[in-house]
Amino acid sequence: MGDYDTGSTGVGKLHISFAKREDLVELPIANNAQLINGYRAIKFNKQNTVGKSRIRNVKAHIDYEKNYQIFKRWRDKYPNAKGSNLKRLYEKISMENGVAVGTLSGKKYEYKWRDEKNV
């Protein structure tokens, strides 16, 4: 019958490039093992992604510090606020800086303030 390997069907011959050798783009070779194994890989450069995430983190941290200073200013005015008074204070702070009331009562704001004041 027929011979079914790639050479007999001619499929391998369909992928011949018609470009000149000078026009072909070569990928950079990271090490000799890639040449030995017969493949070339582009080394992933995560510097750009890390840099972008650091820029976002810096902006988020700057916003957090601004919001914390507002929280600290209000909390220093009313250090003995408890219960419903504290909830109303959180609502005032929330209206001023736009941070949710639940976030203000958590460790990023209230517990940090308590830790600084040793309360």
Rank of each mutant, 00 (worst) to 15 (best):
D76F: 01
N32V: 11
E22A: 09
I70G: 00
L35M: 11
W113D: 05
N80K: 09
S84R: 11
W74E: 09
E26C: 04
V11W: 10
A60M: 04
R21A: 12
S94G: 06
N45Q: 12
E116Y: 03
L35A: 06
K13L: 14
W74P: 01
K77V: 13
R73C: 04
K107N: 10
D23L: 07
N97W: 02
K117W: 02
F71W: 01
F18K: 14
S84Q: 08
Y64G: 07
M95E: 15
S84D: 13
G102N: 15
R21T: 08
N80I: 05
D63M: 08
K46M: 07
A30H: 05
N48E: 14
G106H: 06
E110V: 04
G102Q: 08
D5C: 08
Y39M: 08
D23F: 04
A19F: 04
D115A: 09
K72Q: 11
A19Q: 07
P28G: 07
A19R: 08
K117D: 00
H15N: 10
N67Y: 04
Y39Q: 00
N118K: 15
V99N: 03
F71K: 00
F18N: 13
R21S: 11
Q34K: 07
L27P: 06
S94M: 05
E26A: 12
G102K: 10
S17G: 11
R88V: 03
K82G: 04
R73G: 05
K43N: 08
H15P: 01
G102T: 03
G98I: 03
K107H: 09
T49W: 01
S105A: 15
S84M: 05
E22C: 00
Y4F: 15
A33G: 10
A81T: 02
P28Y: 00
K43H: 06
F44N: 11
I55N: 05
K46D: 13
S8F: 11
R114C: 10
I55Y: 03
H61S: 11
K117Q: 09
L14E: 12
E110P: 00
A30E: 12
N67M: 07
K108V: 13
N85C: 05
I29D: 05
D5K: 10
I62N: 10
A100C: 04
Y109H: 06
G7I: 13
T9K: 10
E96N: 04
E91K: 09
G10K: 11
M1G: 12
A100W: 02
I93K: 01
L104D: 04
N32K: 08
I29M: 10
M1W: 03
Q69E: 15
K107W: 00
R114D: 06
I55R: 11
I93V: 08
N57S: 12
E26Q: 14
D5R: 09
E116K: 11
D63R: 13
K82Y: 04
E22H: 03
S17R: 12
I55P: 02
H15I: 10
I55W: 00
Y109T: 06
D76A: 02
N80M: 07
E116F: 03
S53Q: 15
T9N: 15
N118M: 09
K13F: 06
M1N: 05
Y90W: 08
A33N: 13
I62G: 03
I29F: 02
W113C: 05
A33R: 13
Y111H: 12
V58Y: 05
K87D: 02
E96L: 07
F18R: 11
W74H: 13
K43P: 01
